[in-house]
């Protein structure tokens, strides 16, 4: 019973992480200009890399989100989520240290999802924690056929 609850909890977390990356990726695709301004606001990247990042990163986030949902690609996608989240944490920590007020453009122009640098940092740390937990936690074999296990 405890095993099934844990499996359900893990599945919900995976869906949550997948949704975060999918929503963030799709919203960035809708407004790449706002995202490139968001990247530039960190004042850390040279001009030649900002727009290519704004073109490529949304697709990488979408693929990461989709990958977390698939059993075959889950481990790699969780590792990618760890890498992305770690980058966000470093970027926000750097912005905080330099006293920059940045909105990353993580969610396009959706003002309601924008956040101050401090809130963005906390959000990135939480996302990193969840991603690491999902990557490190291997679902034991005996729970794989439980009610919440993702079908092979």
């Amino acid at each position: 019973m405890v095993g099934i609850r844990l499996a359900c909890g893990k599945m919900i977390l995976r869906i949550l992480i997948a949704l975060i990356f999918l929503v963030a990726g799709v919203l960035k695709l809708r407004d790449p200009l706002a995202f490139s301004d968001g990247i530039a606001a960190f004042q850390i990247f040279p001009a030649w890399i900002i727009n290519p990042m704004a073109m490529i990163l949304p697709y990488f986030e979408i693929l990461t989100g989709l990958g977390v949902l698939s059993r075959r690609t889950r481990s790699a996608a969780a590792l990618a989520a760890c890498g992305l989240s770690a980058c966000f944490v470093v970027l926000y920590a750097s912005a905080l240290a330099r006293g920059l007020d940045v909105t990353c453009g993580c969610f396009g122009k959706w003002e309601i999802l924008q956040a101050s640098t401090r809130v963005g940092f906390v959000r990135a740390v939480v996302l990193l924690g969840l991603s690491v937990w999902i990557y490190l936690s291997r679902m034991p074999e005996k729970w794989r056929d439980g009610r919440c296990a993702v079908p092979r």
């Binding site: 695709l29 790449p32 200009l33 490139s36 530039a40 001009a47 030649w48 900002i50 727009n51 290519p52 704004a54 073109m55 490529i56 990163l57 949304p58 697709y59 990488f60 693929l63 990461t64 990958g67 790699a76 996608a77 590792l79 990618a80 890498g83």
Partner: peptide
């Protein structure tokens, strides 16, 4: 991950060309 990144590069650059107002390569 490398394969997903390569796919993202191809998708990102090709769909940018198709945009009504493409992002220039230089910000």
């Amino acid at each position: 991950i490398a394969a997903a990144f390569a796919a993202s590069v191809v998708l990102g650059i090709s769909t940018n060309v198709l945009r009504r107002v493409p992002l220039p390569m230089l910000y």
